[in-house]
């Protein structure tokens, strides 16, 4: 029998993590027009920050000498399995620390990367970030303190101390949904503000924005700070969910998966990002769940993932070129002032 509850929990968790990514990409690319093809850089950075901080600190705080038994070593992995679930306070403390540090470092990385990219045209922005992602992946493959090609395993999870596995999964889902809600509120407020209006203006016509005194490079740097920070947070949640990270999880395809979500849902519409993330992760989860029950098939269902998502994009864009949900006007108190005037004028 297919475990329906298990399926729903895992789908919603993955949906939550990807929604944070798609919301932040929608802010950067949908609203501000920065073609970010390097989303995976900040996602990966967040995941590695959580994995590194949690594994090293768990060992160090339990009095283990990490120069002798580092967390990527077999003995380290065994120790992590034993020590990781002992102290609830430490687990939750490490979660908060990871979230904060990942936001700040991934955000700062985005801010700094904006420096070279503001000097090149929009298409090159995409490829500069794309290649940076590959550079980071190759670096991680060869950097031993974070496990090189094997990566880090047995990452102690925030709710590892909960005995019942279903309760643990639900608690983690609650955490992911909480972070998603926060992300949504923050990005929704940013978009529906004078800042959001300026971002859309920069997207529509950089030259005109420049002529109206907008410091376009600074604005893009700000946006990349926020977007990358949230991508880092999504990475943290992924690392704890999978309890392991390795460089080959962070390939460019991850970025394009997120792009597929915002194209499907509608560029510039935040609810669209959620819809897009829900659809794409649903396809992904269904295939993952169904595959083991099918036995031997001619084509692995795994390969169908891209075909299905691609087909969906084509169909949606034929019906509605702006995606499922088109961009909405910015909601600020200015709208009320105008509607009072218009209402008063006509009677």
């Amino acid at each position: 029998m297919i475990d329906v509850v298990g399926f729903v929990i895992s789908w919603l968790t993955i949906f939550g993590i990807y929604s944070i990514l798609s919301l932040s990409l929608n802010l950067e690319s949908g609203t501000a027009g920065v073609t970010n093809f390097g989303k995976v850089v900040f996602y990966g950075a967040g995941a590695y920050i959580a994995a590194t901080l949690t594994t090293y600190l768990t060992l160090i705080l339990n009095g283990v000498d990490v120069t002798e038994t580092p967390p990527y070593d077999v003995r380290g992995i065994v120790l992590l399995g034993e020590l990781g679930s002992r102290n609830p306070l430490m687990s939750l403390g490490l979660l908060v620390l990871s979230l904060v540090v990942a936001f700040v470092i991934a955000g700062a990385l985005g801010y700094l990367l904006s420096y070279p990219i503001i000097r090149v045209g929009p298409a090159f922005v995409g490829f500069t970030l794309l290649s940076f992602g590959e550079l980071m992946r190759v670096f991680l493959q060869h950097y031993e303190p974070v496990g090189g090609n094997k990566g880090l395993m047995a990452i102690p999870t925030p709710f590892g101390w909960v005995a019942e596995s279903r309760v643990r999964e639900v608690a983690y889902l609650g955490l992911v949904m909480g972070v998603l809600a926060t992300t949504y509120v923050v990005i929704h407020r940013l978009v529906n503000s004078p800042l959001g209006r300026t971002l859309r203006a920069v997207r529509d016509d950089e030259v005109a924005a420049l002529c109206l005194g907008k410091h376009v490079p600074k604005i893009k740097a700000k946006v990349l700070f926020v977007g990358s920070g949230f991508a880092g947070v999504a990475g943290v949640l992924l690392a704890y969910y999978l309890t392991s990270v390795n460089p080959n999880m962070f390939v460019p395809a991850v970025t394009f998966n997120v792009w597929a979500m915002i194209i499907l849902g509608g560029c510039g519409n935040l609810k669209g990002s959620l819809v897009g993330a829900a659809v794409v992760t649903f396809v992904d989860r269904v295939l993952t769940f169904v595959t083991p029950y099918l036995g031997v098939t001619v084509i692995s269902p795994d390969y169908l993932r891209w075909v299905i998502v691609g087909l969906l994009i084509v169909v949606v864009l034929i019906v509605n070129p702006r995606g499922l949900l088109p961009e909405e006007p910015i909601k600020t108190p200015a709208l009320e002032v105008v509607s009072e005037e218009l209402g008063g004028g006509s009677g």
Binding site: R197, T198, R200, D205, K214, G268, E327, A334, V338
Partner: peptide, 20 residues
Amino acid sequence: FNSLTVLENLLVTPLGQRGE
């Protein structure tokens, strides 16, 4: 700014907007 409304186009201009 073609995807913005007339009102939004006007509101982009002023300098020193706190909400920016």
